[in-house]
């Protein structure tokens, strides 16, 4: 499958209406609605366990939401805590697999931007959390898809890398993309909208926690 050039007639969009998700028997959040279009960036915040990752997986289509609907236009890429890189392979080969799958061109520019050029010979299992995160982002960028779902993209990154990744997200959004970022950290992106997932936690669950 070749990476498709963005189709200008079909603007990317991602919408959730009245979404509710649960994990096991517990209802995590409900009545969650938003609509995102071209150039939008949404920062999803919330305490641990409010269901940020569950929301991401529901939006990606991996799980069926308990209630509500997800609709989207355009291809979607997900970056989570599992970058799908073979731990035994050197980073260059592990990323090379995804580059071959996506039919991408020369990825060295992306590697350079993310500071991975010196790590290509290092087996993935020796990489630090932050380095792995950046590698996952490199695989995502190789796909040139319009919709980015980023689950904690800044965790484990040093100050310089946070700046780089923030600028990359901003660049993606400005270039007609769309990004959803679940993160505890502060994000400095122009025009960023914020959604506090804690506002959608059912009342009973809040009482129980207090």
């Amino acid at each position: 499958m070749q990476a498709q050039p963005p189709n200008p007639s079909l603007a990317p969009s991602l919408a959730a209406s009245n979404l509710a998700c649960r994990r096991g028997d517990r209802l995590l959040f409900r009545k969650l609605s938003f609509t995102l279009g071209e150039g939008d960036a949404l920062h999803i915040t919330g305490a641990n366990g409010t269901g940020k990752t569950t929301l991401m997986r529901a939006l990606a289509g991996f799980t069926t939401p308990f209630a509500g609907e997800v609709s989207r236009e355009g291809e979607l890429g997900l970056l989570d805590e599992r970058p799908a890189l073979d731990p035994d392979l050197p980073l260059g080969k592990a990323l090379g697999f995804w580059n071959a799958v996506d039919g991408g061109g020369d990825p060295s520019q992306v590697y350079g931007k993310l500071g991975l050029s010196n790590l290509l010979e290092v087996p993935v299992r020796y990489l630090s959390t932050g380095q792995r995160k950046r590698a996952g982002l490199a695989a995502l960028m190789g796909r040139s898809v319009p919709i980015w779902l980023l689950d904690e993209p800044l965790s484990g990154l040093d100050t310089a890398a946070i700046e780089t990744v923030t600028r990359l997200i901003e660049g993606h959004v400005k270039g007609g993309g769309l990004a959803l970022i679940a993160s505890h950290q502060r994000l400095e992106i122009e025009g960023l909208q914020t959604l506090e997932l804690g506002d959608y936690v059912p009342a009973r669950a809040v009482e129980e926690e207090e």
Partner: peptide, 14 residues
């Protein structure tokens, strides 16, 4: 599954 490998392939339409 642990690596998230199948998830990423799924997102690529396989």
């Amino acid at each position: 599954i642990e690596l998230g490998f199948f998830d990423q392939l799924r997102l690529r339409g396989l």
